[in-house]
């Protein structure tokens, strides 16, 4: 039997397959993100892979200004209880904290990325 893939490799392979993978610690019943080999909550190693449903809320947002224009950077809280850095598609200045967003795996670049589309009005 071959060794399981490295956590980040399995995560990136998930994105290439169009899904946002995260881990679940079966010892302390908590989500783990970013992927690793032990649970940062309890130190246990009983981590199983799950796939996020992709529903999230913007926890915080900024717009980075540079000569190349403006780009948004956000922190998104996923419904499954983990937080990740990402960006929201569309006008970065229109992104409000508390607004609902939906996962979209962006495969247009060199590597697939988990980004988010606006899903509705601020909650």
């Amino acid at each position: 039997m071959s060794a399981p893939p490295a956590p980040e490799d399995h995560y990136r392979a998930g994105l290439e397959a169009g899904e946002l993978r995260y881990q679940w610690c079966t010892d302390c019943a908590a989500p783990v993100f970013y992927p690793r080999v032990l649970c940062p909550g309890c130190g246990g190693t009983a981590l199983e892979w799950r796939v996020s449903g992709g529903a999230g809320t913007v926890y915080s947002a900024t717009v980075v200004r540079s000569r190349d224009g403006a780009r948004g950077v956000v922190l998104v809280d996923l419904e499954e209880g983990f937080r990740m850095m990402s960006r929201v598609t569309g006008d970065p200045e229109a992104v409000a904290i508390g607004s609902a967003v939906t996962l979209r795996v962006d495969t247009s670049g060199e590597a697939a990325q988990a980004v988010f589309d606006p899903a509705g009005e601020p909650s």
Partner: peptide
Amino acid sequence: PLSYEGEFSPRFPISMFALATARHMH
């Protein structure tokens, strides 16, 4: 930064403090 953050090209370190600021304001 780890790749999980670096891939979204925040400006280090200011964007980190900007995110904290925005949340505090909110």
